[in-house]
């Protein structure tokens, strides 16, 4: 059923986003297996990934207020994901579900979302899993795993 339709030329646009100077530092510090955050001098809110404007009180966070986190964190919420999207609107059903978690890193006020390996539960302590070859890029941080 349905009227005829044509897919036509694809609605595809490639993007290369400028991440800004603060995020650039964040990624480059991956090369030393470091996770940076920005701590607001005024209200103490610690935001990760770091940025220049405090998301809580909106004051400017200067570069001196970048802090290094331990990298360890606690799982706040967890879901078993059974699918991925293929980028074109289709579903890829996974043979084995993957775990996705909301993680509060030690010393941070904001939450990050990441894949988790191991028998994670809400409340589990996790630590980062780094790629074998690290180059100071987003791909360096593969996932988090439960601390044994």
């Amino acid at each position: 059923m349905g009227v005829d339709r044509y897919s036509g030329l694809p609605f595809v646009a490639r993007f290369r986003w400028n991440v800004g100077k603060t995020m650039e530092k964040f990624y480059r510090s991956f090369a030393e297996k470091k996770i940076l955050a920005a701590r607001c001098e005024k209200c103490g809110y610690t935001v990760v990934p770091p940025r220049q404007i405090c998301p809580k009180c909106y004051s400017t966070i200067s570069e001196e207020n970048l802090v290094e986190l331990s990298g360890k964190g606690v799982v706040e919420s967890l879901t078993e994901v059974a699918f991925k999207l293929d980028g074109k609107g289709g579903y890829i059903w996974l043979e084995k579900p993957e775990l996705l978690a909301a993680i509060r890193l030690e010393g941070a006020s904001s939450t990050i979302f990441a894949r988790v390996e191991g028998e994670a539960k809400v409340g589990s302590e996790v630590e980062p899993v780094w790629a074998e070859k690290i180059e100071g890029k987003p791909s360096d941080l593969i996932s988090f795993k439960v601390v044994e």
């Binding site: 044509y6 609605f11 646009a13 290369r16 986003w17 400028n18």
Partner: peptide, 23 residues
């Protein structure tokens, strides 16, 4: 923010009008 587009500048967005209208 045009420079985030990997294709040359403004045409990215403008061409979408044409592409999407093709069908």
């Amino acid at each position: 923010k045009h420079t985030d587009s990997a294709e040359p500048g403004a045409t990215t967005g403008l061409l979408h009008v044409a592409f999407a209208n093709l069908s």
